[in-house]
Amino acid sequence: MELVLFYAFAVLAIGSALLVVSLKNTARALFLFFVVLFGMAGLFLFALADFVAITQIMVYVGGVLILMIFAFMLSNKELLADLQNTSSRFLSMPNWQSLLLTLGFLAVMIYGIIEWQQHTPNWITQNIHKGQVILPSDNNINQLGIKFMTHYLLPFEVISIFLLMALIGAAHLSRKEDKQ
């Protein structure tokens, strides 16, 4: 049952990701991007990361997707022109090359995973032996909060400042210039 659900989420995520890159219509692709993110959140749940899954849905759907749709609507004219441009030449040369490059990269990674399977890293086998593996019955959010405030305090502060800088920078960049 668990495996069936995992495969369902994986197929949902990968299938809609394939549709995102193959669709000509950018608006549709952006809404399918949303489906991909939901599928990925489901996959995070299978790795027992419930808080990460919820954060994924809140940050991406609440923030990133809305921003992307905004940007799409503010630059709509060019997209329509681009749409007519590309539909005439199916399998144009750049697409072909990048497809080849991507498939090659995928082959290399799958080969790497198959090779890697034979020797699991030491720390994983050790932790399985000692029983230090996250279990479905654990209280993840509690532990994460404690870790954020103790062990990972410095990265946490750095990332807060970084996020503030990025938001100020984005607001500054998208400000209207006054007419000279």
Partner: peptide, 8 residues
């Protein structure tokens, strides 16, 4: 991260 309960 599923195999790392000590540090999360």
């Amino acid at each position: 991260g599923r195999y790392d309960k000590i540090n999360y």
